[in-house]
Amino acid sequence: MQDKKKQILDAAIRCFARKGFNATSIQEIVDELGMAKGSIYFYFKSKDDLFVSVIEYYGEMLFELMTGFPEEAGLPPREKLILQWERQFGFVVEHLDFMRMLISEPLTGLHPQLQKLMIQIRARSHLWHVHHLLAIYGDSVEDYLEDAAALFSGIVKPFFEAMLFEEWQFDSLRLSKFLLERLDDLVTGIIEDKETQILPSKDLKELRRLAGYAEEEGNEEMALLRQVADLVMASSAERDDLIQGDLLAALGLLKEEIVKPRLKNHFLARAMLALLKQHVPDSIMEPLSRLERSLSKNGHLA
């Protein structure tokens, strides 16, 4: 992002955090920056547009930290969750103004684009919780996903609020491990009790649509990715288990990149393709090359 545009976003966050969106004027934001008022309108059409851009930019930054990094591809699901929690806590500490604004600002009755964006953020957050629950606990949690996701989200909230409003200092690794142990307690209890789920099940396909993720069915890149994955599985005897695990993890991370709505991690996608090309046999190179060309054409490798 252009430096000047980011400076405006940062100044707007500070002003919105102090006074709220409605009570903050464009003049106060330019005073915070020490720049001409007309400069803001070069980048943003209105205060509403600026507010939407603030939520969008920092929201995407946070979700990038909540996804896997290349060096984490082969890690067990529990370790991935701990690392992603640690990054979330670090983001909160680094961007206290943004997080305080996001929690305290009433978002009803605002710009329609903002309402749509908040629906997207909530859908992506829910899918993130569901993804980790299924990765860690497998099929045993499927009948209790909504209750488990609600508890998953709820155990973290008090700690976020202590960080934001009480400026609580903590060991992020210790907290992440503690939260995972508590999540184990909650999910294990739900599964063992075998009670009927209280919250109604959500349509995950509809959630993906609301989150802005690409549809898997009919998607050229997803079809090519599935073809490559099938061939990698069929040729597993040609490589050791460690390499095979790395290749499957690379395919999983590529899938996550393909379905993201924007601000894709181009470095990660290129790294995963390089790993695949290094280890797959010649028989898989043709569909893998077609996948790479498709990803490049659609902006995943820009």
Rank of each mutant, 00 (worst) to 15 (best):
E60Q: 10
S104P: 02
E32S: 06
P112C: 06
K255T: 12
M222A: 12
L114C: 07
I155L: 15
K5P: 08
I284E: 13
R239T: 11
A250Y: 13
V30L: 01
A269R: 07
S104F: 03
F267W: 12
L175E: 01
R293C: 10
V141R: 03
I26N: 08
A150M: 12
R78D: 08
L295K: 15
G245N: 12
V187L: 06
L179I: 00
A229S: 14
G212K: 07
T67Y: 04
K157N: 13
Q2M: 14
Q227L: 12
M35Y: 10
R262H: 13
I40A: 01
N298V: 11
Q120A: 09
L268Q: 12
L179M: 15
I155W: 04
Y144C: 02
G74T: 13
V92A: 01
A23R: 07
K255N: 08
R14G: 07
C15M: 13
S153F: 11
A36C: 04
W85S: 14
R14Q: 10
R239Q: 09
Q169I: 11
F91L: 06
A234D: 14
G109I: 00
F89I: 09
Q113F: 01
A237I: 14
E216K: 08
S153W: 03
T196D: 10
L273H: 10
D230I: 09
L96C: 01
I29F: 09
